[in-house]
Simulated scan of single mutants.
Amino acid sequence: MSLKSLLLAASLGLVALPAAAMDKAIMVMDPYARVSSPVAKSGAAFMQIMNHGAEDDRLVSATSPAAARVELHTHIDDGNGVMLMREVQGGFAIAAGETYMLKRGGDHVMFMGLKDSWSQGDMVSVTLVFEKAGEVTLEIPVDLEREAAHGGHDHKHDHGDHSGHKH
């Protein structure tokens, strides 16, 4: 390769670098999904969302062809020791340079009105929608064998079909 070709390739790489870096501001690590039983009408997905960008961002919604409805949920203690799942209006803030955990017993992506049953090893297509980063589409593996980390709620009981659930 000539010096001229090398310099041209290097300059094109430098021009392309900022666009590529901006596309990678949000990274998703260790995603997995689960259901409570083969006949469950709802399921959930968990993951680590890393914001490598210079600005705070927000996960505002999620969509999936696998379910009639997909919502961002959290667990709230009702004051009597009962944990209730609720949709989070406005989504989850993800600070610049930070990692946000969607985990069992906490914030998660909830699938209601599953169109098919989920089995160990299946893949679920999900699009996460961020306020600034836009859409991030993932193929999330179904992992029914993973244990809950740090004693968190493990979603082993069937929450039923949340499609008519009031928030």
Rank of each mutant, 00 (worst) to 15 (best):
S2R: 09
S2F: 03
L3S: 12
L3G: 06
K4R: 15
S5L: 13
L7R: 11
A9W: 13
S11H: 01
L12W: 10
L12I: 08
L12T: 11
G13K: 01
L14S: 04
V15Y: 10
A16Y: 03
A16H: 02
P18M: 07
P18Q: 02
A20Y: 10
K24L: 14
M29H: 15
M29E: 15
P31S: 01
Y32F: 15
R34I: 05
R34Y: 04
S36P: 00
S36G: 03
S37W: 08
S37P: 00
P38N: 08
P38T: 04
P38R: 01
A40R: 03
A40H: 03
S42V: 07
G43A: 13
F46A: 00
Q48I: 10
M50I: 11
G53D: 10
A54Q: 13
D57A: 06
D57F: 08
R58T: 13
R58S: 03
L59D: 04
S61C: 05
S61D: 12
S64M: 01
P65S: 06
P65L: 06
A67C: 04
A68I: 07
R69G: 06
V70F: 01
L72T: 04
T74S: 12
H75N: 13
I76K: 15
I76T: 13
D78E: 09
L84S: 05
M85G: 13
R86M: 10
R86T: 09
R86S: 09
E87N: 06
G90D: 04
G91M: 00
F92P: 00
A96Q: 08
Y100R: 15
Y100V: 11
Y100D: 05
G105C: 07
G105V: 05
V109R: 03
F111A: 02
F111D: 02
F111K: 03
M112C: 12
L114A: 02
L114I: 07
D116I: 02
D116F: 01
W118P: 00
G121W: 05
D122C: 06
D122I: 06
S125Q: 15
V126M: 09
V129D: 12
F130G: 00
K132N: 10
A133R: 10
E135Y: 02
E139F: 00
E139V: 05
I140D: 00
I140L: 04
I140Q: 01
P141I: 05
V142A: 10
V142T: 04
V142F: 09
D143P: 02
E145S: 15
E147V: 11
A149I: 08
G151A: 09
H153Y: 15
D154Q: 02
H155Y: 15
D158R: 05
D158I: 07
G160E: 11
H162G: 11
H162C: 10
S163G: 00
G164E: 13
G164R: 03
H167I: 00
H167A: 04
